[in-house]
Amino acid sequence: MELTRVMHVEDDESIRMVAEMALADVAGFELLSCDGGHSALRQAEAFAPELILLDVMMPKMDGLQTLAELRKLPSLAATPVVFMTAKIQQAEKQQYLDAGAIAVVEKPFEPMELGDTLRELYQQAVQP
């Protein structure tokens, strides 16, 4: 199954713009960029993303809280989520995986490779 719709939740506008170019222009995904957890929760169900790329450190509602709230939405209960965060320790990474993420992408990321990375992760996640 091919990945086509990706929702990106990131509070930093610059990174959102870079990701937009990397995922929409370069990788060719249908992309929904949200500037925070609340915005994501409002638009997620309507957009019905196949994969959610979620920043960890965000004001008001951080990545883990956002994930927990998204999981409460029936249509997004099983949508693969990839966390994006700064370089972290193995123990922290495990914490995110335990919360339900399929992977953690480190910042700074390589924008030209980000689309391919998400595709691979998605394939792995949806494979029976």
């Binding site: 610059s14 990174i15 713009m17 870079v18 990701a19 924008p111």
Partner: peptide, 13 residues
């Protein structure tokens, strides 16, 4: 990291 991410990402693109 946040500005670095956007700077390096922009440059890469």
């Amino acid at each position: 990291r946040t500005p670095l991410t956007s700077i390096s990402g922009s440059i890469s693109l």
